[in-house]
Design a protein around this nucleic acid. Structure first.
Lengths: 234, 234
DNA sequence: TTAATTTGTTAGACTAGCCTAACAATAATA
DNA sequence: TATTATTGTTAGGCTAGTCTAACAAATTAA
């Protein structure tokens, strides 16, 4: 028996998810601009503009002409649900179907829109209620509670800190393969040795070896520092 | 890395699947009419007509104005692939996620359109290469080979025959629940006792008990008869 | 504080997939 | 075979989601 609480298209779900990722999740701000959102979704600003009006009409976002946009409580709930599904599917592909961590994202982008509460709850159970996906990102639980880690990117000022890698920002296959190549992985210990201001490279120690990474690379690696660990909550 | 051999929409895939189910699979004919196809898909004939022209353009079907339609070799390949995915997902939901056989169809209708060869091959492996889904329908293998069973429906003239239930034609939840209620299930032995021409009911013996079923019901139950079993091939 | 740049909006157009209403061809039947 | 019924097609219209091009507002910099 289908219950039509609110039937959203794949597209609408993707807009809500993007908005969540650009605001709440990165925890840096509450709102996102139209161009920023359009770029994140790979569409033109004019297209995003139309959708913002539509989502406002449905009371899923707050939006005023020429202003920034933010999720309403209801919009946030839906966004978190999509993210939960995405990350559970990634975990399933990785744990049960022998996918590598650079392969899971693309397929999960499709699977995240399947509508079936039972499917997701059973998947969660099959995987034994995982708390994070293969990229280290937290999986919201069935109540929509999401662990927001107080993590840094390796590009921040962390010289001398002893850190542990917790995740990646860029989920592209190309980036993840590069991460593998360099011997980095989730839960690896990383010590930040120096920042070379001459060419902006960041020198780190991992697996007992010293390597240098670009700022662009470092920006996409999440870590927590053993020293400045803050408590996290779901 | 995505390979764009031919990117079909969900809708296009559904038209090919329907055409396959109305022709090759039921093995009764090679072609289907526009209205028949439209009815099967739940759209108006005018809508189906547009799509038939489009699929002809893509060389996936044979179609001439005012004529019946049939699948080309390429179209058949795609249809079988969609059916393979549908039935593997049904099996997965039933075997691994505690779905009942009347719940799997609806969700598999969504899952069948996910594009990922690796996903399906791994799912097949996880399920240990099943040959039939929870409704008894054969699952095409990775090469697209499909077991066509020489089965009858219970509505055919089978008085006196000892049969075994092999599947159902109607996959709706309502019908399947009714099948459960009557104590019928795949692999149950069924003996056809009589056809009562007064009210058209068909009397059968199952689980040591005699029950009567309507022609409408009987039409949706597939059986093989121990006497007239023919060899099947994939 | 004006000018330049960035950011956001509007208008108009296109495609896919659906519809209805009117019509044309084919098939069934009297 | 002529008529009726069925089946299939065309024309025109709708919505969702996309685009480009032109323009307007807001922000940044001179």
């Amino acid at each position: 028996m289908l219950i039509f609480v609110l039937m959203l298209s794949f597209t609408e779900e993707n807009y809500l998810k993007s908005l969540f990722q650009l605001t709440v999740e990165t925890a840096l701000k509450e709102e996102a601009g139209t161009n920023e959102l359009a770029a994140h979704l790979g569409v033109k600003p004019a297209t995003a503009n139309d959708m913002l009006k539509k989502l406002k009409e449905k009371k899923l976002i707050k939006y005023e002409k020429y202003g920034k946009s933010s999720l309403t409580k209801e919009g946030k709930k839906i966004a978190i649900d999509v993210i939960r599904k995405h990350r559970l599917w990634e975990t399933f592909l990785f744990e049960k179907l022998e996918f590598s961590w650079d392969e899971v994202h693309e397929v999960a982008e499709q699977l995240e829109h399947i509508q079936s509460k039972k499917l997701i709850d059973q998947l969660d159970k099959l995987l034994n209620y995982p708390v994070s996906d293969p990229h280290g990102d937290p999986i919201p639980n069935a109540k929509g509670e999401l662990l927001i880690l107080h993590q840094h990117t390796l590009a921040e000022e962390l010289v001398g800190h002893q850190c542990k890698m917790t995740g990646v920002k860029d989920n592209s296959s190309a980036f993840l393969k590069y991460v593998d190549q360099l011997g980095l992985a989730i839960n690896k210990n990383i010590k930040v040795i120096a920042r070379h201001h001459y060419d902006d490279l960041i020198e780190i120690e991992v697996n007992g070896k010293r390597i240098s990474v670009s700022p662009k690379f470092a920006e996409n690696i999440f870590v927590v520092c053993t020293a400045c660990k803050k408590k996290s909550k779901r």
